[in-house]
């Protein structure tokens, strides 16, 4: 039971991607110009993570070691195509906005990383929980970055105008350089908080 809980929460703080676990940076930078896109991307990745972890864990005793990576890639890619089709059918606007970053979930290192590090040697249920936890952490981070950039960069949140007409948005934040600097500062703040709590941060 304690195992279950520790797996459930590790993705939300201890291994929170992409801040604590510096993986999956491309989507974290690319689609976080608005909170809505960040959340959509996060949820798509969560979907793929849960099911890839589950499938890989179920098949872990059948897949020979030599074709391990190839099999993982096929499984992950299948799930990504599935997500692509579902988004096109039910969330067309979002799928247009996320564009090529949806197929690029295939090469998101978080997913292959979790498959190798967790699903390949743990039972199915725990693996699915791990996928859920890491995915949730990723969704949270992307929504957070997206919110900061959208509120300060465009004056809206999930498309709802928040600031009055007197507020001149920092347009810089919704452009490419803003993404890097915003993510870098959040990472720095999290390190500072970790150090303050006395955690040993190796980065």
């Amino acid at each position: 039971m304690s195992r279950f809980l520790s797996v459930l929460v590790h993705g939300i703080w201890k291994d929170l991607p992409p801040f604590r676990l510096v993986l999956g940076l491309c989507p974290a930078l690319a689609v976080t110009a608005s909170a809505n896109n960040g959340m959509g991307m996060g949820l798509s990745v969560t979907f793929v993570l849960i099911f890839s972890n589950l499938t890989i864990s179920l098949l872990r005793n059948i897949i020979p070691d030599k074709v391990r990576i190839a099999s993982y890639i096929v499984i992950i890619a299948t799930l990504v195509v599935l997500v692509e089709m579902i988004l096109q059918a039910y969330f067309f606007g979002l799928s247009q906005q996320l564009g090529i970053y949806i197929p690029l979930i295939v090469v998101n290192c978080i997913i292959l990383g979790r498959a190798e590090a967790f699903a390949a040697r743990n039972p199915a249920f725990l693996s699915a929980v791990d996928g859920f936890s890491v995915g949730l952490g990723f969704t949270f981070s992307l929504t957070l970055v997206g919110s900061i950039r959208e509120i300060l960069g465009a004056g809206t949140w999930f498309g709802i105008p928040l600031t009055g007409p007197d507020f001149e948005p920092f347009a810089f934040l919704v452009k490419a350089p803003g993404a890097f600097i915003c993510l870098g500062l959040i990472l720095g703040l999290m390190n500072a908080y970790g150090r303050w709590r006395g955690e040993n941060v190796i980065q």
Partner: peptide
């Protein structure tokens, strides 16, 4: 570099400034 910004954090900010100059 300030302790808490070492590593990936300062790297990302640097990349941001580079991206700005590429604009």
């Amino acid at each position: 570099v300030p302790q808490f910004m070492r590593g990936s954090a300062i790297a990302l900010v640097t990349a941001g400034i580079m991206s700005l100059s590429f604009m």
